[in-house]
């Protein structure tokens, strides 16, 4: 099974300050990156967003859900074959678009 992680950005408002999921994950699945780049000033911490990027590395230990103080982490699992099929379809659509 492969993890599907959704972060509720209405609940996770200041990820760089909180950073508990980033810091606890034994498999370093999460990344926290800026949604805006400004000239002349730093991106506000609130303009950062958390994503599960390395989903194929997630063991499903559940620590991220446990430590999140706002309940923002939604962790689910899908069978690998099902996801593989979905991504293969995305790929075919991508190739079709390129050849059209």
């Amino acid at each position: 099974m492969i993890a599907q992680i959704k972060i509720n950005f209405d609940l996770c408002k200041d990820p760089l300050l909180c950073r508990r999921c980033l810091s606890v994950c034994p498999s370093v699945v999460f990344v926290c990156g800026p949604t805006k780049i400004w000239k002349g000033r730093e991106t506000d911490p609130q303009e950062y967003r958390i994503f599960g990027r390395y989903l194929d590395k997630c063991s499903g230990c559940g620590d991220c859900v446990k430590v999140c103080p706002t309940g923002a982490v939604d962790l689910g699992f899908l069978p690998k074959e099902q996801l593989a099929k979905r991504y293969q379809e995305e790929r075919i659509a991508q190739l079709n678009e390129r050849n059209s």
Binding site: V31, C32, G33, P34, T35, K36, I37, W38, K39, G40, T43, Y48, R49, F51, R53
Partner: peptide, 12 residues
């Protein structure tokens, strides 16, 4: 970027 360009947080 001067006025705040969109960035992809997943590409960080």
């Amino acid at each position: 970027e001067a006025s705040g360009a969109d960035a992809d947080p997943q590409a960080a």
